[in-house]
Amino acid sequence: MWKIEVEAVSTYDFDYTLARWSMDPLTSLNRKERWVNVPVKLGDRPYVVRVIGHGTVESPVFEIRGESEENKEELIEHIYKLFRWDRDLDEIHRHFLNTSLKSLFNNYPGTPIVKDFHLYDCLMKVIIHQQLNIKFAHILTKRFVEQFGFQRDGVWFYPQPEVIAELDYNQLRELQFSQRKAEYVIDTSRLITRGELDLQGLAEQSNEEVMKKLVKIRGIGPWTAENWLMFGVGREDLFPRADIGIQNALKRYFELDNKPDYEQMDQQSVGWEPLRSYASLTLWRSIEG
């Protein structure tokens, strides 16, 4: 076993990340002991890396542990980029002190955007989750991964796109997928395996280019594309106006009689650019549990 210790460059609320992940039954973690087991795929090789929080929000320190020296440096780099410990969240906090969200950010300092474990996993998750309540969305995703993915050291790995591309739609229907959602998941996986959808290449393009290309794919709308950009790629200026959670959070925060429409949301979000993803995440946080 190897282990190293790293520090984040600013305030960082690791416990919030654990709390958010704890809603997903597929994630292997312990909130009391403050660790999460991260499934990492490098090529065709699966690894499990444990990340442990030792510090506080104000002085965040993390320990990374792995089982094998093989690809150690790549694994460390992957984890560092995933948790984005190099992002100065104090700078983001200062930005929002000059906006209408000042008190919200004072209530929830150090809220990081931690990326999902892998680009394909994230895309499958947001396609499955779209237009479902969160509880059933997690149930459906759990069935999908347990049926077609695999475990290593008690940690679940999402299936590879090649596995899903070979499925018949009825195999997902048996898990309570709707016919359309089964088609979206399998057909998108087929595009990836045929080389018609390159997620890694797409992740290097601008938000506008990504949105334009993804929404052309059947079953992927703006909400799905925006969430993939935010949590799969880690983009910082996304504001999914169609998200019911964000609408409810705005209604509560601004003490509105009704959920805001798109025009009101655009007015309320003036000055949040170019960091609207942090506004979105912190708004979600304000109404979670």
Results as ranks from 00 to 15, higher is better:
residue 175 L to M: 06
residue 189 S to T: 09
residue 236 E to C: 06
residue 218 R to K: 15
residue 200 Q to A: 11
residue 235 R to P: 01
residue 191 L to F: 06
residue 161 P to I: 05
residue 195 G to W: 01
residue 180 R to E: 06
residue 234 G to Q: 13
residue 181 K to R: 15
residue 174 E to C: 00
residue 217 I to H: 10
residue 241 R to P: 02
residue 165 A to E: 00
residue 158 Y to I: 07
residue 246 I to E: 11
residue 187 D to M: 07
residue 183 E to L: 08
residue 168 D to K: 14
residue 227 N to H: 14
residue 210 V to H: 04
residue 190 R to H: 03
residue 212 K to M: 11
residue 171 Q to D: 13
residue 185 V to P: 01
residue 240 P to M: 08
residue 233 V to I: 15
residue 158 Y to H: 12
residue 198 D to K: 06
residue 200 Q to E: 15
residue 226 E to N: 13
residue 246 I to V: 15
residue 232 G to R: 12
residue 184 Y to G: 09
residue 204 E to W: 01
residue 209 E to K: 13
residue 161 P to E: 01
residue 200 Q to H: 12
residue 221 G to S: 14
residue 192 I to W: 03
residue 155 V to E: 05
residue 209 E to A: 14
residue 205 Q to M: 15
residue 206 S to V: 09
residue 209 E to Y: 02
residue 211 M to G: 08
residue 204 E to F: 02
residue 223 W to N: 10
residue 220 I to G: 11
residue 199 L to W: 09
residue 205 Q to C: 08
residue 186 I to E: 01
residue 200 Q to N: 13
residue 243 D to I: 08
residue 245 G to L: 12
residue 202 L to Q: 07
residue 194 R to I: 01
residue 214 L to A: 07
residue 235 R to F: 12
residue 171 Q to Y: 00
residue 160 Q to V: 04
residue 184 Y to H: 07
residue 230 M to Y: 06
residue 189 S to A: 15
residue 218 R to V: 11
residue 202 L to H: 06
residue 166 E to D: 13
residue 232 G to Y: 12
residue 234 G to C: 13
residue 180 R to S: 13
residue 248 N to V: 07
residue 173 R to H: 03
residue 157 F to G: 03
residue 175 L to R: 01
residue 186 I to A: 05
residue 170 N to E: 13
residue 158 Y to Q: 00
residue 218 R to F: 14
residue 213 K to F: 02
residue 175 L to N: 03
residue 220 I to W: 05
residue 162 E to T: 10
residue 181 K to F: 02
residue 203 A to K: 02
residue 167 L to C: 06
residue 197 L to D: 07
residue 219 G to K: 02
residue 179 Q to K: 12
residue 210 V to E: 09
residue 172 L to W: 03
residue 206 S to L: 11
residue 183 E to I: 05
residue 218 R to W: 14
residue 161 P to T: 08
residue 160 Q to D: 12
residue 189 S to F: 06
residue 232 G to E: 12
